[in-house]
Design a binder for these strands. Structure first.
Length: 412
RNA sequence: CGGGGCGUGGUGUCAACGGUAGCACGAGUGAUUUGGGAUCAUUUAGACAGGGUUCGAAUCCCUGCGCCCCGACCA
């Protein structure tokens, strides 16, 4: 991509109404556009990052047998009444709307009911299970207070998965498989070390604890207590002597931390399937309840977390596997050579952002640091005199001079 | 939803006593520049909305809307 063609541009100043580091940097770098409080649009480079995160999530969900679907945002009231979740007194952050004829509709904030409703057309036998479906889709929640940039929005991208099992034992196996996949997602995003499986409240529809995945950061809004040795944590919400004992945790092993919830998994038992009248026939032809689990990952929130954590005073520092481009090529007045290198790299399938603008060297360097592409290549009189192009990692301060072929061999 | 703060070009601005809306960045044009947001010239573009007070309102008052922060909330 030629930077001269890119319609977004960088800004020196962050808008005064953004305090959150993630939003400030992403806006300054031209990755996102604020539509209103808690609602952000993704510009070309921001979308590329988001798509890269989706790709990782998708690969891991497919890896544990998830089948991808896309449910609808508009929801009929009836199915939600069956599970007693339509009432604003029960779920207060719904966006609701109406058809011209007055029929009430819900705007999707989660999809247990519609998923169960949809698969009831297909699922009827013990032979059909276990199985799981997931989607990656915008969710809408009427948060009383949106805040912290991408970390808590009213419209946000979420991966939600649902499993259907024949019995509790089978459900537990499915559940742990997915938890393992969640850890792989966070590992691949470079967050593995600081992301803890955290026991939390299961919500009003399940008596059991749920598992949250909390990434440690001071900007997090959850307070959790971490057992570093066991690599687990407990949310402050459920911290009690009784619960600690139940979970086999000791007070003296716990350290208080702040975390951002980047995922959450729930045991739903058969609350939703029973309520929506979805059962299966077992080997003996007897009607049985279906055990369900649901599993969320905040995809856009993850982008915010990565932007927040992987940054320095100059700007963003994207991990290699989700960066909008892998190489940022800067041309400092050496058009002919730079064009040739750009062509060489792109013909090898390398994703390059090529700064071919007529701008000063300082501006190009500053923009490159702000945008945060992992590898910076500079073609200049100086680099050519030294024998090639200058390579520098965004995360490091030293640079070196290599030839194009050496670089291609390195990156290949 | 309770409390607090704030709305000035695209962005920023503890810039302007109730009396000519200024500066910087950006963007356009021309020139000179090319290793850390370079320089010069020139152009562009602004008071959240509605009402009130006043000879006169960006400035004071009211209402609405929007934004941010703290808290509560967050199946």
């Amino acid at each position: 991509m030629r930077q001269s063609q890119l319609f977004t541009r960088t800004q020196k100043n962050a808008p005064a109404d953004e305090v959150a580091m993630n939003a400030q940097l992403l806006i300054r770098a031209g990755f996102i556009h604020k539509e209103m409080a808690g609602v952000y649009a993704y510009m070309p480079m921001g979308l590329r990052v988001l798509e890269n995160i989706k790709k990782i999530v998708r690969e891991e969900m497919n890896g544990v047998g998830g089948q991808e679907v896309m449910m609808t945002t508009l929801q009929p009231k009836e199915i939600w009444e069956k599970t007693d979740r339509w009432d604003d007194a029960k779920v207060d952050n719904w966006f609701k709307t109406k058809l011209v004829n007055g029929t009430e509709l819900g705007v999707g904030l989660t999809h247990e009911e519609p998923i169960v409703d949809a698969i009831s057309n297909y699922l009827s036998s013990y032979k059909d299970m276990p199985f799981s479906v997931y989607q990656i889709q915008n969710k809408f929640r009427n948060e009383k207070r949106a805040k912290s940039g991408l970390l808590r929005g009213r419209e946000f991208l979420m991966k939600d998965m649902y499993t259907f099992s024949r019995n509790q034992r089978e459900h537990e196996q499915e559940y742990e498989k997915i938890v393992a996949a969640y850890h792989r997602v966070y590992d691949r995003l470079g967050l593995g070390e600081i992301t803890y499986r955290t026991y939390a409240d299961g919500g009003i529809f399940t008596p059991r604890f749920s598992d949250e995945f909390q990434t440690l950061t001071e900007v997090g809004e959850d307070t959790i207590y971490v057992d570093e040795k066991k690599r687990v944590a407990i949310n402050e919400e459920i911290l009690s002597d009784e619960n600690l004992e139940k979970l086999g945790l000791k007070k003296e092993d716990l350290v208080q931390k702040k975390g951002v919830e980047v995922g959450n998994t729930f045991h739903l038992e058969s609350k939703y399937t029973d309520a929506l009248d979805l059962y299966y026939n077992d080997e003996n032809g007897e009607k049985q309840s279906i055990i369900m689990g649901c599993y969320g990952i905040g995809v856009s929130r993850l982008m915010g977390v990565v932007a927040e954590l992987f940054a320095d005073e100059k700007g963003l520092v994207w991990p290699e596997n989700i960066a909008p481009y892998s190489v940022h090529l800067l041309n400092l007045g050496q058009d002919e050579e730079a064009e040739k290198i750009y062509n060489d790299l792109t013909s090898k399938g390398i994703e390059v952002l090529f700064d071919d603008r007529e701008a000063s060297a300082g501006e190009k360097f500053a923009d490159s640091d702000l945008i945060g592409i992992p590898t910076r290549l500079v073609v200049s009189k100086k680099s050519l005199a030294a024998g090639g192009i200058e390579v520098k990692k965004r995360s490091e301060s030293e640079s070196s001079i290599v030839t194009v072929n050496e670089f291609l061999a390195q990156i290949g």
